[in-house]
Design a protein around this nucleic acid. Structure first.
Ligand code: SF4
Ligand code: SF4
Lengths: 153, 153
DNA sequence: TATATTTCGGAGTCCAGACTCCGAAAACAA
DNA sequence: TTGTTTTCGGAGTCTGGACTCCGAAATATA
């Protein structure tokens, strides 16, 4: 898996919050319930996003989290960086050690193209785009594929 | 890390074997020593490559492993598939579940481009290309970067 | 044949990521 | 104020990947 589970949960949750319209705070318990993620675990992931300035949180009744910035201003790159770090955008995908210290291996230019395209895509995909689509078809965010299968009963 | 440690070790070892010219069997103990990899661990990784038909092994004195196919015929794709599996070439890099069952998310086409480029590069990079270069500069394969630094003593 | 060398195969240890559990602090509502 | 809701923070458990260890099987050489 390219991205960690924490990261995927963070992305899903952020999309969900964005799709709620931003009227008020969304309690983490509801996000966890809707997306079928462990509440306690999701709590810690979203704490990372709040401390990264992507979400704002409030405690108490009617508390929860909301987006700290405009939806069009939050990209996949921001979320991945905040949770998994930026290594994935800077490391060699090949993983061979000792890079950049001597002449590059023959695959270098090709890998660089892949990595740059990867980064460029992550920077260009906004939460807004993802949220609009996921609002149309309310699927894609829940881990279950059962709802896509025709009901035989 | 995109590729597992096992996979990276397998790639490094295969390059090393290829760089030896293919005269005879190369003992795993020597590969492990030269590349600074745990011998017992590397043994298991190379067993995967032999069972995948990429390497051939022989026991006993003057035993070891050698390439089962021409160097120009072994690609990174082969090695990664044999050790880490093909998931990385087929999965969504985003990791969102439920894919392909309903309309794709807005990022789909972009991610597909990245994944296809990734696969294409992996298929086009041969062990021959990597081995030639690593034979020139005998570095790049050892994990240590000490040898790249100027010796002050 | 006897012996040294080397891969083969399985079992065990160690650690980080994934996930759980519990209590405390903050904020709203009655 | 009192109680309820909710995030915050830390500590604990579980699992798979990374790595170690040991004995057995195979093979070349003397
Ligand atoms: S030279 Fe480039 S492609 Fe080769 S191992 Fe280093 S970063 Fe990766
Ligand atoms: S639709 Fe495409 S990009 Fe979106 S989650 Fe699925 S595979 Fe990934």
């Amino acid at each position: 898996m390219i991205l960690s589970k924490s990261c995927i949960y963070g992305i899903q949750a952020t999309i969900f919050v964005a799709a709620q319209g931003g009227g008020g705070h969304v309690p983490i318990s509801r996000i966890a319930e809707q997306l079928d993620i462990s509440f306690h675990f999701l709590t810690k992931v979203l704490q990372q996003l709040t401390s990264a300035g992507i979400l704002e949180s409030m405690r108490g009744p009617r508390g929860g989290v909301l987006l700290a910035r405009p939806v069009a201003d939050i990209t996949l790159f921001d979320l991945v960086s905040a949770i998994d770090g930026t290594d994935i955008f800077t490391e060699c995908m090949l993983g061979l050690p000792g890079c950049g210290h001597a002449a590059p291996c023959p695959a270098h230019d090709l890998w660089l193209e892949v990595r740059n395209k990867f980064t460029q895509v992550a920077r260009s995909v906004t939460i807004q785009a993802l949220a609009e689509r996921s609002a149309e078809l309310n699927v894609r965010l829940t881990g279950s594929i059962r709802e896509f299968l025709p009901t035989t009963s």
